[in-house]
């Protein structure tokens, strides 16, 4: 790389204790802008806790989280989840949390932040928000069409298959115009072809908008083809990091995954 790498997010010595139990210990990672970063590790290694800290769900016990908003770094640990979302950091959940009384299309439409029709005064005058709404509907349908899922647009989450729910959860994240996406196991439960298509779509978004992805995933084979860089967590500590092929040959990583 000739150009100097700009970082979008960094954690510095982040630790988290839950009632005395150490879940994360001095984790420092840096995320380059426009990268697709993998975050892997065995179950219980603290991956989701790290996501929860970055997205403001938990406050770290020690350490800080830095984020580049416009041109300077700000500390974002301790902000509320919705404020972090407004800094254009979006996450998806490992166990999908779709809104059960909204249809799939409404689940996608709810995502964009700062919609005009969300204030009471505008809500009662529908002319003020109809145009924006139509554009959002178009965008949502475009995303669904890309995955040949137009037919589920009016179904409720209870009527969907597990794979579709998982896909909608990820697509809902992608609806938001974010700069940094945190995807928690987006491929779990998807068939091979859909998983491929999703990864290609992620790459496509990255290439056209220069946005950044951090992906937690257990399907390492698929993940390794896509990501630029990998962090490995084990027992709350950073075990290894590097290019995918380096990490996969690292004996420590193999030991952590396979056991002794």
């Amino acid at each position: 790389m000739s150009k100097e790498v700009r970082h979008i997010l960094a954690t510095r010595n982040v630790s988290k204790y839950f009632e005395g139990v150490k879940v994360l210990e001095k984790v420092s990672i840096t995320i380059p802008e426009g990268g697709i970063i993998g975050l892997i590790g065995p179950n219980g290694s603290g991956k989701t806790t790290l996501f929860n800290i970055i997205t403001g769900f938990h406050v770290p016990s020690e350490g800080e989280v830095l984020y580049r908003a416009s041109n300077e770094f700000i500390r974002i640990d301790g902000l509320n989840p919705h404020e972090i979302y407004r800094l254009r950091i979006v996450r998806t959940f490992q166990l999908p949390r779709l809104f059960h009384s909204l249809t799939v299309i409404e689940n996608l439409l709810v995502t964009p932040v700062g919609q005009r029709g969300e204030s009471i005064l505008n809500a009662v005058r529908w002319r003020t928000w109809l145009e924006e709404e139509k554009n959002l509907v178009k965008k949502a349908l475009g995303i669904l069409a890309m995955f040949n899922k137009l037919e589920i647009a009016f179904k409720y989450p209870a009527q969907l298959s597990v794979a579709d729910i998982k896909l909608v959860e990820t697509l809902r994240g992608l609806m938001a115009n974010a700069r940094l996406y945190l995807l928690d196991e987006p491929l779990a439960g998807l068939d091979f072809a859909t998983a491929r298509r999703l990864l290609n779509f992620i790459k496509e978004i990255r290439n056209s908008y220069n946005v950044t992805f951090i992906i937690i995933e257990h399907r390492i084979d698929l993940l390794m083809e896509t990501v630029d860089y990998v962090y490995v967590l084990h027992n709350g500590r950073l075990l290894a990091s590097g290019k995918p092929d380096e990490v996969i040959q690292n004996p420590d990583v193999v030991k952590a995954y396979v056991g002794e």
Binding site: E72, I76, G78, L79, N80, P81, E83
Partner: peptide, 11 residues
């Protein structure tokens, strides 16, 4: 998980 008291600082 909502906190009324925020701590934000610029670096």
């Amino acid at each position: 998980p909502y906190r009324f008291i925020k701590r934000v600082s610029r670096k």
